[in-house]
């Protein structure tokens, strides 16, 4: 299949989208600009900061290091998909709020998507495991301690 533009049919937060895209469109830009889901942030576009982390078939990945075309037929979850209802937060979001796990919030969507998947595999993590899990997410504000506190609180 060779294409100038390619068709992407993708499920994002349980909603099906179909779009024609240029092959070079990054998944992060597709999510933000085409789907208008601006909760996924973009910091570096070379895989270092982790702000763009989304769940791709339930595993956290860098959306800046994939092309939108590669998402064809796959399932994505972004930070907008976490809260169970418009007036309720996900337990990890609650814990981040309670423990001051964010200041400017730029890194927060990527940290949440990383940790949600991590906690599924490791429901009782210790502090070292939590720090290893977010080693690929830069936060310029919190110094990480309050993020670790939030995770500990959410699993207590």
């Amino acid at each position: 299949m060779d294409t100038e533009r390619c068709t992407v049919v993708v499920s994002v937060n349980g909603v099906r989208y179909e779009r024609e895209v240029e092959p070079r469109l990054l998944l992060s830009d597709f999510i933000r600009h085409e789907l208008r889901l601006a909760g996924t942030h973009v910091g570096c576009e070379h895989g270092v900061c982790g702000a763009c982390t989304v769940l791709f078939d339930a595993e956290p990945v860098r959306s800046c290091l994939m092309f939108a075309a590669q998402a064809n037929g796959h399932e994505i979850m972004t930070v907008e998909g976490l809260a169970p209802a418009a007036d309720r937060l996900h337990p990890l979001q609650e814990a981040m709020h309670a423990a001051h796990g964010l200041q400017c919030g730029y890194c927060t969507p990527g940290i949440l998507m990383t940790l949600v998947a991590f906690l599924k595999d490791n429901p009782r993590p210790d502090e070292a495991q939590i720090r290893a899990a977010i080693s690929g997410n830069l936060c310029r504000c919190t110094g990480y301690q309050h993020i670790v506190d939030a995770v500990m609180r959410s699993v207590a």
Partner: peptide, 11 residues
């Protein structure tokens, strides 16, 4: 575990 980060290792 020494190679990159979890999100990179998923891909």
């Amino acid at each position: 575990p020494e190679i990159a980060h979890p999100q990179i290792r998923n891909r």
